Amino acid sequence: DSWHDTVDGIELELHGADEELLKLAKELLKRGVSEEEVRRIIEELLK
Rank of each mutant, 00 (worst) to 15 (best):
L14I: 15
K30V: 08
I41W: 05
I41G: 00
D8W: 02
D8I: 14
W3Y: 12
K23W: 10
D1W: 00
G32C: 02
E35C: 12
L22I: 13
E44R: 04
L12Q: 09
E37P: 00
V38G: 01
E27F: 04
D5H: 08
D8K: 05
L29T: 02
E11N: 14
T6M: 13
R39E: 03
E36S: 09
L29S: 01
E20L: 07
L21C: 03
H15Y: 03
L24F: 08
V38L: 01
E13T: 06
D18W: 12
I10P: 08
W3F: 12
D18Q: 09
R39L: 09
L29Y: 03
K47C: 03
E43K: 09
E20Q: 10
L45T: 03
D8A: 14
G32E: 01
A17K: 09
H15P: 15
L29N: 01
E19H: 12
L14T: 05
G32N: 01
T6Y: 13
E43Q: 13
K26Y: 15
W3C: 07
L46I: 15
L29D: 01
D5T: 12
E11K: 13
R40K: 12
R39T: 05
T6V: 14
L46Q: 06
K47Y: 07
K23M: 09
D1Q: 14
L45C: 04
R40D: 03
G32R: 00
L46R: 08
L29P: 00
G32D: 01
E19D: 13
V33T: 05
K30A: 15
L28A: 01
K47S: 10
T6I: 15
G9L: 14
E20T: 12
K23N: 11
H4E: 13
L45M: 11
L24H: 04
E43W: 09
K23A: 13
E11H: 12
D18F: 10
I41D: 00
V7G: 10
L29A: 02
S2F: 12
D1Y: 01
L24I: 07
L14R: 02
E20R: 10
W3V: 14
I10H: 04
W3P: 04
H4R: 08
